[in-house]
Amino acid sequence: MLKILKYSFYDLMRSRWSYVYFIFYLLLGFVLLFLNNDVSKAVITLMNIIIVLVPLIATIFGVMYYYNSKEFTELLLAQPVKRTSIFLGQYLGVSGSLAMSLVLGLGIPFMLYGLLRSNAIWDFSLLLVTGAFLTFIFTALAFNIALSNENKIKGFGYAVLLWLFLAVVYDGLFLISLIVFEEYPLDNFSLIATMLNPIDLSRTLILLKLDISALLGYTGAIFKKFFGTQMGFLVSMAILVVWTLLPIFRIVHKAKRKDF
């Protein structure tokens, strides 16, 4: 698997897109910091970008890579290599290079700006960790979609729909149900609904850092326990891990049964 990972990674490192992605983040980091001159504000803007853009890019990139590397996959399949290694290697290659572009692209400007001396470093690291998680999750979801759809156009379509659903529509439905059922205790519902969407989950993790003052204004006991202690953080992190592993397991499962 490491060999496949190496080649996928290598292959991606020289494709234009990883550079575009890397440079995009690099520029973004510089623009945010040096135009704003304010780390705290930059962190808030970054959060918006990370929870919206990172999943979108990971999804599209994942689907694209899968379809584009079909030949490579077929070449490998005839070689004495384990099937799951091929797909996991490719998956890790894509998600790894995307995550690296993100972390380096944003990390470098912030380092140069003197983040290490700033007290926003924890917020910022959390942002990067969440961003990396989202990359791994959405690339895995994209691979799942691509593995299940031979048709490129369909695959792309589903991938974009998935993103649209999780990034926007889900929250809309969530809001509507909260308002419609406002008479009922909604603590549990809210927390569970948050956990079921990796974007919301990541957002909550960041909120725990940025907006804890506001969150603690809420009266619900379960909320309070969740937000007021380390528990919220630990539970969210654990579920992000689950969110990463589940689609990976499905990749393995699907890959074992697919014909080429």
Binding site: D171, L178, Y218, F223
Partner: peptide, 13 residues
């Protein structure tokens, strides 16, 4: 109006 909606803070929606 609905305090629980705070959980949607900073969402794209």
């Amino acid at each position: 109006r609905t305090p629980e909606t705070i959980i949607l803070l900073r969402s794209l929606f």
